[in-house]
Write a protein that binds this DNA or RNA. Structure first.
Lengths: 186, 186
DNA sequence: GTCTATATGAGGATAGAC
DNA sequence: GTCTATCCTCATATAGAC
């Protein structure tokens, strides 16, 4: 899969020759299947983004305490590392390039901006409702808390390996235990 | 400065022509000052790493409670964002490339591996001594706690801007307040 | 559907004039 | 110390044979 290469070396530094070799064909043959290198990237990220957003919308519908909701989000977020490490790395590492001219010619990658905005909204909404209900301290700045957990997930792409050591759910719980204890009102 | 370009676009994607233009000269003239593009990177990172390690060694000498020590580390770490955002971004984003062949030919960038290892040791030593002294819960996994804060610092490079909104020290305290509350024994 | 061959451009680096 | 000019390599993408 091209996504492993993109994640390991970055999009620009992955050549169509490598992608071809990885698929057992030569670079020229790739263009029978894809119109361009960007098309390959686009295919990959579009599916991931819409699938993740569907899940967040679904999770947001469940009526549980904000602390539980937060734990569900974290488990889901860390759980993505089991199957979608590559996509997370690509979006993070190549985000600026992808959303900027010339790579983003015709704004074809603008859905990444919307993706990030919606994910952040799901998280901060939960934190805000926890503050409103009195479960979290009013000093818990929603964006700071969100970023703390999000950055932990992104950072985990650099050390977490599925089926080695802690499971994604265990990592999520370890993080959430610390953060929840830190923002809970008592 | 070339470091801004490296941080914004990545080392490989920054051309010597751009570096030259940024300095007001043509790319050919650059080679009067530097032997190669890698030499420019090396100059930049070597100074940063040794300066940061000196500071950590100095901070580690102070005899205060682990929680205070942790706060000092965090303030120092986030404080780097005021002057060294570029260096932090470069080391993070280009770490794999730099420490791998062929970019790391002759292992010229191996000091980055040592740098990361020593920084991690300073942090985990403090957390371990807090557990030993009973100030922190014994369930506080040192590497998880370290990574949580480190990733918050790295993630902050994507949103923190000096002199806008919160100061680096305020961000550090907000994070430390959450994490310390989450790992303190009571 | 994959191959070979090639067009076209960009990148790092060098040589020598000024 | 900066310029012009150029070498060499490697990148994306295309055309047409098989």
């Amino acid at each position: 899969m091209a996504k492993r290469l993109f994640a390991e070396r970055g999009i620009k530094q992955t050549t169509v020759r490598e992608i071809g070799a990885n698929a057992g064909i030569l670079s020229g043959s790739l263009y029978h299947h894809f119109g361009s290198k960007d098309d390959i990237v686009d295919d990959l990220l579009r599916d991931f983004c819409s699938s993740v957003l569907d899940s967040y919308r679904e999770l947001s519908r469940s009526k549980v305490a904000p602390s539980e909701q937060l734990r569900m989000f974290a488990r889901f977020g860390f759980g993505l590392l089991d199957e979608y490490t590559a996509e997370i790395i690509i979006i993070q590492d190549d985000y600026v390039d992808l959303t900027k001219f010339p790579q983003n010619k015709d704004q074809r990658f603008n859905y990444l901006l919307e993706f990030n905005a919606e994910v952040e909204k799901h998280w901060t909404d939960v934190i805000k409702s926890g503050i409103k209900s009195g479960e979290f301290q009013s000093s818990a700045a929603p964006r700071i808390v969100y970023r703390l957990i999000r950055d932990a997930i992104i950072g985990a792409t650099r050390w977490y390996r599925p089926k080695k050591g802690m499971s994604a759910a265990q990592v999520a719980d370890a993080i959430v235990d610390i953060v929840l204890d830190g923002i809970k009102d008592r």
